[in-house]
Computed example of a mutant assay.
Amino acid sequence: MVRCGCALLRKYGNFIDNLRIFTKGGSGGMGYPRLGGEGGRGGDVWVVAKKNMTLKQLKNKYPQKRFVAGGGANSRVSALKGSKGKDCEVPAPVGISVTDENGQVLGELNKEEDRILVAKGGLGGKLHTNFLPLKGQKRVIRLDLKVIADVGLVGFPNAGKSSLLSRVSHATPVVADYAFTTLSPELGKIMYNDFKQISVADLPGLIEGAHMNKGMGHKFLKHLERTRQLLFVVDISGFQLSSVTPYRTAFESIILLTKELELYKEELQTKPVLLAVNKMDLPDAQVKLHELMKQLQHPEDFLHLFETKMIPEKAVEFQNIIPISTVTGEGIEELKNCIRKALDEEDDKENAAHHSKQLLNLQNSSLVF
C-alpha cells in the first residue's frame, strides 16, 4: 500500500438504466415464379450507439418500444430482383449491453456509431422457397446501461463522493449532509492544463449486503464493471447508516467495501484502486489517519476483530492513499495528479501489450514463409 509522492488529488425513478423493447425484421418480398424472379430481402433491425442519447430519451421518443424494419420489394417484370427492405435503427447510448430474452449477450456498444444486428429480415421468395417470402426475425431485447468512465467512485453513503466530484470536475451533483443524496449515477470530467480529460462516475452509496441487491446494490455495482479504475472514498470519522445499524470505522468501511465488490464480482478487484480519505478538516482527523495507516499497513493484526464472513479473501492494494478535504480543498490537486498518473501507467501497459501482440503476430506470419 503506497502513498503518492506528489502533493495530495432525484429521484431514482427519473434515471433509466435498462429498457425492454420489441424488434422485428422486415418480411421478404414475393418471388415471380413464371420468370424466376426473386423477392427482396426484408430489412434488418440494428441497435446503434448515438452521441448524447439516453435510455430515457429513447423511451420518451418511442413509447411503444416497437421497432420494425421495412419489407422487401416483390419481384416484378420490370425488376425481377426485388430491392431490400429498409433497415430500422434503434438509437441507444454509448455503454449499452444488448441481451436477448434468454439473457444471451448479443453485443456491446462501446463507442459512437457501434452497431449490433438484433433482428434479421426474412429472405425474399425464390426457387427453393417456392417463390414464397419468409417472415423477418422477431426478438424482444434488453438494453442495459453500464456507465463508461475512467474512474468510478466507491463508498458508503455520505462519504463525500458527490462533494469530491464537484471539487475535481465541472459536474454539479446534489450535495447534502445526509445519506443517499446521490440516487443515480453522476458523471463529471477532470480537465487538466494540457487539455487531457478524465471522466469520473459518482455512484450511489453502497450499503452492507449490496452484493445481495440490498439498497438496489446490483443496479449500481454493475456500473463499476465499465470503469478503468476505482477510487474508494471513506470518511475518516467512520460511518453509520442509521441508529439501528452498527458504527463502522474508516478501516472497517474499507474492509466491507472490498468484501461487497468481491462477493458481487471478483473481477472488480483486478482494477487499479486509489483511496481518498475524506473529511480531514474534522477534529482529530490526523490522529485517526495515523491509526488508519497503521491498520492498512498491517491488516492481519486487526482482522480478528471482524466476523469471518466480513473478511475479504484478498486485501485490496491501493496504488495511492491520499488524505483530502472537499471542504478546504486539501489534497485535491494531489488526488487529481495521482488519478492521472495511475491511468497513464495503465495506458502504457496496454500499449506495451498491444505492441507485443503485434510483434508476435508478425513473427508467426514470417514463419509461414
Results as ranks from 00 to 15, higher is better:
Gly70Thr: 03
Ile255His: 01
Thr308Gln: 15
Ser75Gly: 06
Gly125Gln: 11
Glu260Asp: 04
Glu38Lys: 15
Lys135Phe: 06
Asp281Pro: 09
Glu38Met: 12
Ile322Ala: 13
Ala352Leu: 15
Leu360Val: 13
His355Gln: 15
Ile332Arg: 11
Glu313Trp: 11
Pro272Asn: 14
Leu303Arg: 11
Lys65Phe: 05
Lys86Pro: 00
Ser27Leu: 04
Leu106Arg: 07
Ile254Gly: 01
Lys309Arg: 14
Gly82Ser: 07
Val47Ala: 11
Lys86Val: 04
Ala315Ser: 12
Asp17Cys: 12
Leu335Ala: 07
Arg142Glu: 13
Lys279Trp: 11
Arg226Tyr: 07
Leu127Ser: 07
Lys61Ile: 09
Lys24Met: 08
Asp177Ala: 12
Gly238Pro: 03
Pro323His: 11
Cys6Thr: 11
Pro173Leu: 10
Phe302Val: 09
Lys81Leu: 11
Leu274Tyr: 10
Pro133Leu: 08
Leu143Lys: 06
Tyr178Asp: 05
Ser243Ala: 09
Lys219Gly: 00
Thr54Glu: 09
Asp235Phe: 00
Ala352Thr: 15
Lys111Val: 07
Leu224Thr: 05
Lys120Ile: 10
Tyr32Ser: 03
Leu360Cys: 08
Glu89Asn: 08
Leu305Trp: 12
Lys161Leu: 05
Tyr12Asn: 05
Lys81Asp: 00
Val168Gly: 01
Asp144Ser: 13
Val316Tyr: 08
Thr328Gly: 10
Glu262Asp: 10
Ala119Ile: 01
Ser162Glu: 05
Gly329Tyr: 07
Leu292Phe: 08
Gln64Ala: 10
Phe220Asn: 04
Leu132Trp: 06
Glu89Leu: 04
Gly43Met: 07
Pro299Cys: 13
Tyr62Ala: 03
Gln229Gly: 01
Lys59Leu: 13
Tyr32Thr: 05
Asp194His: 05
Asn74Phe: 05
Glu291Ile: 14
Glu186Ile: 10
Gly13Glu: 13
Tyr264Gly: 05
Lys288Ala: 15
Lys86Leu: 03
Asn361Trp: 14
Lys314Thr: 15
Glu262Met: 08
Lys111Gly: 01
Asp17Gln: 11
Thr99Asn: 04
Tyr264Gln: 02
Lys259Ala: 08
Ala69Cys: 04
Gly71Trp: 00
Met1Glu: 05
Tyr32Gly: 02
Thr326Met: 03
Ser75Phe: 01
Gly121Tyr: 10
Phe180Gln: 10
Ala352Asn: 14
Lys357Cys: 09
Gln57Tyr: 06
Lys146Ser: 10
Gly122Gln: 05
Asp344Arg: 13
Leu145Lys: 11
Gly215Tyr: 04
Lys271Val: 08
Val200Asn: 01
Phe195Cys: 07
Thr326Leu: 03
Tyr247Cys: 00
